[in-house]
């Protein structure tokens, strides 16, 4: 049942089309990575520098974080690929559920907070 092979040769027979697809995917992943590092640095600098006011920096870094997470989920973790309908459904449900949760834990803690 189990195909077991010696490790030195490629075991998957890929068509030319699939090879091109994998090459393209490789490029996309590297671009994704560069964007994420760039965003991280941008977020870091917008907080580290005194020039940018917190009222702008906080929403800005939050947006950067959300974009990074989307990239991570959809590119690195392949949620964008086909055959990922159920994972998408459950991850999105999870995300919808946690929004009121986090908001409540942050804000609805009673009149006297501290």
């Amino acid at each position: 049942m189990e195909p077991k092979l010696n490790t030195n040769q490629p075991q998957v027979n890929l068509s030319k089309k699939e090879k091109i697809k994998l090459e393209r995917e490789m490029r996309h992943q590297i671009i994704t990575f560069v964007v994420m590092i760039f965003f991280t640095a941008l977020a870091f600098m917008s907080v580290a520098s005194d020039l940018i006011p917190a009222s702008f920096a906080v929403p800005f870094i939050l947006i950067l974080a959300v974009i990074q997470v989307i990239l991570q989920l959809y590119y690195f973790m392949h949620l964008k690929d086909k055959d990922h309908e159920w994972p998408n459904a459950f991850m999105l449900s999870g995300i919808v559920i946690i929004i009121p949760m986090v908001a409540a834990l942050m804000l609805l803690l009673g009149v006297v907070k501290y």
Partner: peptide, 21 residues
């Protein structure tokens, strides 16, 4: 990857917002 996803938010929400907001 998921560990990394969580860390992105920790970096932003705990550290960056801890310093900047």
């Amino acid at each position: 990857h998921f560990i990394d996803v969580v860390w992105v938010f920790i970096f932003t929400v705990v550290y960056l917002m801890g310093i900047g907001g």
